[in-house]
Design a binder for these strands. Sequence first.
DNA 1: TCGACGGCTTGACAATTATCAAGTGACTGC
DNA 2: GCAGTCACTTGATAATTGTCAAGCCGTCGA
Lengths: 231, 231
Amino acid sequence: MSDSYRQEVRDLALFAEMDMGNFEALMRGAYVQNFPPRIELITEGELPDFLHVVVSGSVDLFSTWNGRETSLATVRPVSTFILAATIRGAPYLMSARTLEKSRIVLLPSEDVRRLFDSDSVFARAIVTELSQCYRAIVKNTKDLKLRTSLERLANYLLRQRQRNGTDEFDLMMEKRRLASFLGMTPENLSRSFKGLEPFGVKVAGNHIVITDVADLMRFAKPSPLIDDDST
Amino acid sequence: MSDSYRQEVRDLALFAEMDMGNFEALMRGAYVQNFPPRIELITEGELPDFLHVVVSGSVDLFSTWNGRETSLATVRPVSTFILAATIRGAPYLMSARTLEKSRIVLLPSEDVRRLFDSDSVFARAIVTELSQCYRAIVKNTKDLKLRTSLERLANYLLRQRQRNGTDEFDLMMEKRRLASFLGMTPENLSRSFKGLEPFGVKVAGNHIVITDVADLMRFAKPSPLIDDDST
DNA sequence: TCGACGGCTTGACAATTATCAAGTGACTGC
DNA sequence: GCAGTCACTTGATAATTGTCAAGCCGTCGA
């Protein structure tokens, strides 16, 4: 494995503080793989062989039931996914597929679990990461249960504005996936974008301009307890 | 604190394996409190002072936004809640209220965080607990996004059947709260119960009889990746 | 250049879900 | 006992969301 990837993984909060010898051992068993777009990396129901780290590209976490499919999250560099399944040695609850050409570091689950047992610094880093993931999905559940689809879209746009630090930005994903992520159909997402025009949202393809932030916020009523990424 | 509560807390997976001296220290700072029904124990947005352990009674975790409210989970003895907020020292994302007369053990957050840093056995127990909570809420999100309300109710009833080990049981909560938990209105829950009659569900007040399990399963299509409590 | 493809949009319509209003029935306190 | 309360139910109606079909409009490759 090239040193640059090694360093990128080491820089993750999850691995940054762990014992260097343990980290080296973990990386010895690891390998990097390149995937083309739209490749299914893992399938829900299977047992975790590897902890995955996205080094470049992006990965969609999704789930299916009874012929329906929904997108649950997007993983962007540099971060891990399916940590909980790896730790528990329990079946994946989500499937994962690459969205674009992506480079993934694979860490054997066995090694991760063994280190989790022997390296208490690593164990603590895992707690931090897991509690972060847990809180993120709690916020997502609140978003889903307390808001209409129009309100979810409005707040999504405000969160993107916050991330980008500007009132003008491009959507980070296909609209069809955004629709799935927000829990609606592509058709309804189209109509919802129209529905936000009166509140100061201009849409041209993937390009969004928020012309009246105050007005949009008045409608969206964002809350730190749902929309803050950090806490 | 009485020895019986001390032992009940110790028996929790979260505390069972930790160093005895550390556990004793934790319990010295703890205290037990009795609450009447419908008392708000914590309010979302506040900072965690205590890790809560329900010893008897039951607690509703809920959240509000813009005048709406939704029930996210019910905590029954003996288990903890708001572990993630306590560990991160971040604001509660959910509020909690007693559903009935309840006895709660309060463990100062400071002590919990300190022990989490110094007792690696405890830290590992926390990882197990958190990953369990995380996976539970992922399942809940899939339930919400992939199923209609009728399907959610059908699968809920099958889960209760599994828990109780019998085709005849009482609902564990008020129907209004069940409705909120399942992401629907009380009116719709009423109609949904009616809608499940053709699939072998008989309802009389809080009492449920599943007269045709095979038929109900054919409709509900339960999946271990959504409906299994254990994995 | 052209046609095929795929994602997006639009309109008509249907299903699902929520809201409002009224009524039932069980329990409670005077 | 009896009125009052509250959860639950039911019906009518409205809002939201999904489905289906068709058309638009880029991109891409022949």
